[in-house]
């Protein structure tokens, strides 16, 4: 089942697109980390000043907007979803 090795050097445009695909794969991971981040601000011990809902709201929505913007930028540069015969990134 060995896949044929592709060329080592790619055309600049193709190279760019591959890296964009890598970025597209990475983005949800970053998103998940960002969305889970507020859990670290939870303070189980009483008596401490607690994080306010509005602060978390600002953070989550800010992260959300950034994710949407980055996703838009990435998908704009990912020209054709039908193109790569090799779904594995190189």
């Amino acid at each position: 089942m060995s896949r044929e090795p592709g060329p080592v050097f790619l055309e600049r445009r193709t190279y760019r697109r591959r890296r964009m695909a890598d970025a597209a794969r990475l983005l949800p991971v970053i998103g998940a980390v960002l969305f889970m981040l507020p859990l670290l601000w939870l303070d189980p011990s009483d008596g401490q000043p607690q994080t306010s809902t509005t602060a978390v709201m600002f953070f989550v929505f800010g992260a959300w907007i950034v994710l949407v913007a980055v996703a838009a930028a990435i998908s704009r540069n990912l020209s054709d979803p039908q193109d790569p015969p090799s779904s594995g990134g190189r």
């Binding site: 597209a24 794969r25 991971v29 998103g31 969305f35 989550v60 959300w64 994710l67 996703a71 979803p81």
Partner: peptide, 25 residues
């Protein structure tokens, strides 16, 4: 229960921006 409702939207958000993984296929 405060911001918990957000999770219902955050999950799909992650799936959509991760479309290259699963949705595309």
């Amino acid at each position: 229960s405060g911001l918990e409702y957000l999770t219902i939207y955050l999950g799909p958000t992650l799936v959509m921006i991760g479309w290259w993984w699963t949705l595309r296929k």
